[in-house]
Design a protein around this nucleic acid. Structure first.
Length: 265
DNA sequence: GCGACAG
DNA sequence: ATCTTGTCGC
């Protein structure tokens, strides 16, 4: 039988302080600069034997309104040369942990880590060299959002993508809009997000032609913001980078299929 | 005190 | 996050 661990039980009275300690502990392992062996395809590459980034992972978790505890985690892998999906896997689970702003990882990370571990031990040749995450990295109240959490625990370079701004350190959508109108004439396609302390937390970028709403990019783990921005540009067919977009679309479809099958039985 | 708050 | 058809525009 399944054994309940402390992770399975959500105690609203103790969870916040427990979670903060866990985030602070994991954060000691966070690497903010480029720390990977591969190159980007458009890099100058004098080393002919160097590996080029090819397999980009995307993860997401979907939910169904009528079943509040039901969730579907998805892991997809894209071939960067074609932006086609070369691997997909899903996991239907029941979540006991609620969404609490600032603590998304405690709800969504376990199912994603399970999918990554399953692929890794299978020895699949397309195991991702980089992970793109639906949620922020260091653009987070304690500098350790879902993308950083997953990057550290999976020991993978990771990029955080927010579709909405998590307003911390005085950041606001209105402020971002103003910066964009000011920088638009300079041909800048993204703007740096400066915290009150002056450090750069991430970037806002208008990633698609017809879109005015930016996405919010931040370092997850083992990658610089500059490299993260380059990779996001390489993977955006639409506003949301393709790896995350495919994980989102396919996890939603899988969840609906799964729920429909449950009704028949 | 009040509102805001990644997914 | 979740639900959802048509419809406006290039």
């Amino acid at each position: 039988m399944e054994k309940k661990t402390s992770d399975d039980v959500y105690n609203p009275a103790t969870a916040p302080e427990h979670w903060i300690r866990a985030q602070d502990s994991l954060k000691t392992r966070l690497v903010l600069g480029d720390d990977f062996a591969w190159l980007l395809h458009d890099d100058d590459k004098p080393e002919l034997d160097a590996t080029v980034l090819r397999y980009v992972g995307g993860v997401d978790v979907s939910y169904a309104k009528e079943h509040p505890t039901a969730a579907c985690g998805a892991l997809v892998v894209l071939d960067l040369t074609t932006l086609e999906v070369v691997y997909e896997d899903f996991s239907f689970v029941h979540l006991n942990v609620p969404y609490v702003p600032g603590f998304l990882a405690f709800r969504e990370a376990p199912v994603v880590l399970e999918l990554l571990e399953k692929m890794k031990i299978s020895g699949h040749p397309c195991y991702p060299q980089l992970l793109m995450v639906d949620g922020n990295g260091v653009l987070h109240p304690r500098g350790f959002g879902l993308a950083s959490h997953l990057g550290v625990l999976a020991d993978l370079p990771s990029i955080g993508i927010g579709k909405n701004l998590h307003c911390i350190e005085g950041l606001s959508e209105a402020g971002v809009r103003q910066l964009f109108t000011a920088k638009a004439e300079l041909g800048e396609e993204y703007i740096a997000l400066h915290g009150q302390s002056g450090c750069i937390l991430g970037a806002a970028m208008v990633s698609a032609q017809g879109s005015t709403k930016p996405i919010y990019i931040s370092t997850g783990h083992r990658i610089s913001l500059a490299s993260a921005i380059r990779i996001v540009k390489l993977t955006c067919k639409f506003r949301v980078p393709e790896a995350i977009r495919q994980a989102d679309i396919r996890s939603r479809a899988f969840l609906q299929r799964h729920l429909k099958l449950c009704l028949d039985h």
